[in-house]
Design a protein around this nucleic acid. Structure first.
Length: 300
DNA sequence: CTAGGATCCTGTCAGC
DNA sequence: TGCTGACAGGATCCTA
């Protein structure tokens, strides 16, 4: 589930804890989750942590890089020491990615796929559905890696005109499907696609070919705005996991206008938020703000 | 080439 | 309570 802001938040969080730490032991509990020979990263030092789209890149000395993609349910948990069912100290631990109780639970657990033991603390790669992975490669080969090589620009690196031009090559795709396509534009997933389209006032099921240049510009602006806000708020991390009201995993409520709000009132116009299926994904929108009536009946 | 659906996997939740 | 099917913050593979 993690999208660009969550991966960015993990990057920042991990940097605080593990930069210049050495990997002293690797425990691969699920082969599927680790691509490569783990011996190659043994006794290597973490010298840099980067992000490209939703991919996290941990650079080691010896010119090797550990790439991590969290896909749907991946999460990263760092613990400086074993904790004992007491209040978790944010100075001693960090967690980000797929938000669930595992942020607080004992590590490792049944979702733990890989453990990187450092000379100080441990990194746990947890992934309920096993879609995510870690992968070792030479740092110089990162740009050649297939997912990275095909990755489109992030919203900050792209103008509305550039997006519009790309959409002309995928006119029969829904605009939501196009935003979700990492080759067209990098970083958005199901939540931020819905939220950006709401901010842009554009119906998710419209064909990409019907999007005007000005609308493409609005989509870029919407993506930047919602992602920046999420990063500012701390993404889905341990620090934001327990809300002020004590409820869990509700940091989304701080910025979500439509996502997971079906049947609730639009914050702008009061109409009821609708949910449907677009590009094979649950899709939320405001029928009024996003102009459902303007497009109803048209093939859009 | 494009675009859509099935698929990888585990868990949860609504509805019967 | 127990079962069943739908669905899930992703991306690739297969098909037409």
């Amino acid at each position: 589930m993690p999208e660009l802001p969550e991966v960015e938040t993990i990057k920042r969080g991990l940097k605080k804890f593990v930069l210049n730490k050495k990997i002293v032991h690797v425990d691969v509990k699920e082969r599927k989750s680790f691509n490569g020979d783990e011996q190659r990263i043994l006794n290597k030092k973490i010298v840099q942590i980067r992000r490209k789209g939703k991919a996290l890149l941990i650079d080691l000395d010896d010119r090797q890089t550990l790439m991590i993609h969290l896909r749907m349910t991946g999460q990263i948990v760092y613990r400086k020491s074993e904790h004992k069912n007491e209040e978790i100290d944010l100075k001693e631990s960090f967690a980000g990615g797929h938000p669930n109780e595992d942020f607080l639970n004992q590590m490792p657990n049944k979702h733990t796929r890989v453990i990187l033991e450092l000379d100080e603390g441990k990194i746990f790669f947890n992934d309920q559905r096993k879609f995510g992975f870690m992968k070792i490669m030479a740092t110089k080969d990162v740009e050649e890696e297939e997912f990275i090589r095909e990755l489109g620009p992030e919203p900050w690196e792209m103008t509305g005109e550039e997006l519009w031009e790309k959409l002309q090559k995928h006119k029969k795709m829904t605009i939501k499907g196009a935003i979700l396509d990492q080759k067209i534009i990098a970083g958005a997933g199901n939540i931020y696609a819905d939220e950006a389209l709401f901010l842009a006032g554009i119906l998710p099921m419209r064909w990409a070919g019907t999007i005007q240049q000005k609308e493409a510009e609005k989509i870029i602006r919407g993506l930047k705005k919602v992602m920046e806000k999420s990063i500012e708020l701390g993404g889905s991390t341990l620090a934001t996991y327990v809300g002020a009201d004590g409820k869990r995993g509700n940091y989304l409520d701080a910025f979500a206008n439509v996502y997971h709000r079906e049947g609730e009132k639009c914050k702008k116009c009061g109409a009821l938020i609708k949910k449907t299926r677009v590009a094979g994904r649950g899709t939320h929108y405001c029928p009024v703000c996003q102009g459902e009536n303007d497009w109803r009946g048209l093939k859009c």
